[in-house]
Amino acid sequence: MIVPFNHVLIVSSLLFALGLFATLARRNLIMMLLGIEIMLNAGALAFVGASLNWRQMEGQAVVIFVLAIAATEVAVGLAAIVGIYRHGGSIDPAVAMTADREGGAA
């Protein structure tokens, strides 16, 4: 016997809340991307717990796709951050937005 399913869900929602906090509170595009990674990871943990709870492999199959999405998101996101940094010289989202607007107007 391991733990109740709801305890897995509680750990997963605490992790998700931490990721949400990192995404909303940090003024740094890389840390925001890390927050999204934490949230994806928390979702994967909930899926694995559900997979054990209902004795279905469906949940584990979904986690494979979560991993694929996370890898995709990181590759494109980091490439975009490098572009923003080269363009505006900063990865602060507020500064990056204004630099982008000025660049578009010129």
Binding site: M1, I2, V3, P4, N6, S51, L52, R55, M57
Partner: peptide, 11 residues
């Protein structure tokens, strides 16, 4: 539902 301990299993 969900407050009973789950039985361990391995996929």
């Amino acid at each position: 539902a969900g407050w009973d301990a789950m039985a361990a299993a391995q996929a």
